[in-house]
Amino acid sequence: MTLRWETFVERVRERGEYRSPEEADRAARVVLALLGAHLVGEDRAQVAAGLPESYALILLNPLQAAEPLDPQRFVRATAAWIEGATEQTAGWDVSAVLSVVADSLDEDLMRRVLLQLPPGYDLLFGRPQAA
């Protein structure tokens, strides 16, 4: 089921403890653009299908990543794109957005998404995997 924009933003706002929906929206746009650069094929399309249309389009039309970013570099890249962000606040942004995304995925799709990403993203999605 596709989440409505207001519902998605409100969940990100709550998890990220943002003061406004605009802050949550900005974080969502940056994180989803970076995530989209790391996912391919049918899995990316299925993740997008559960997102509000404006976010789905961001995920489906990302900047191309030269190489997969490990979780720490993903957080640093997020910090670089959000004005005034630090690595610590960007880590919060990434986790707030990706945990809402993870809630919209079934277990099988979540597993396939994690297989496309470098090790460690399970923590960013709030879905720690057993070693």
Results as ranks from 00 to 15, higher is better:
E6D: 15
M110D: 00
E22P: 00
L69M: 15
V97E: 05
E23D: 14
A28L: 05
D103S: 14
L51Q: 03
T89A: 11
R73N: 15
A56D: 04
M110N: 01
L124Y: 07
Q88L: 13
G36C: 09
T78S: 11
V97K: 05
D70L: 02
R15F: 07
Q64V: 14
I58L: 09
A90C: 07
G16F: 02
L98W: 00
A56L: 03
V113C: 00
D122F: 06
P62V: 07
A65I: 09
E22F: 00
V30L: 12
A33G: 09
A28N: 02
E83A: 11
V100K: 01
A28G: 11
F125S: 06
R15N: 08
A45Y: 13
E42K: 15
Q64F: 08
G41T: 12
E22G: 00
R4K: 15
Y55M: 12
T86M: 07
V31L: 11
A37W: 02
L34E: 03
E53M: 12
L69K: 09
L32D: 00
E83N: 04
T2M: 15
E83T: 04
R127D: 01
A85I: 05
L57I: 10
Q88M: 07
A80L: 03
P52Q: 08
D70E: 12
R73H: 14
V101Y: 05
D108Q: 12
E14V: 10
T7K: 14
G120N: 12
H38N: 04
P118I: 10
D25Q: 09
A48G: 11
R19I: 00
T7R: 14
T7C: 05
E67F: 14
Y121K: 04
L124I: 01
R13G: 01
A65D: 08
G16K: 05
E107D: 15
V30E: 08
Q72D: 12
R19F: 07
R11S: 04
A37T: 01
W5P: 06
P71C: 10
F125K: 03
P128Y: 05
R76A: 13
A79D: 06
V31E: 02
V94C: 11
R19L: 13
P128G: 02
A45W: 10
L39W: 05
E22V: 00
E14N: 11
L115N: 02
R73W: 10
L115I: 00
E10M: 11
A90P: 03
D103K: 12
D43C: 02
E42Y: 15
G16C: 09
W81L: 15
S54K: 14
L109T: 14
G126M: 05
L57G: 13
L51S: 01
S54T: 13
S104D: 06
A130R: 13
R112I: 06
L57T: 13
A85N: 09
A90W: 00
L59S: 10
A96H: 02
A33V: 11
P68W: 08
T78Y: 07
V75T: 09
Y121R: 08
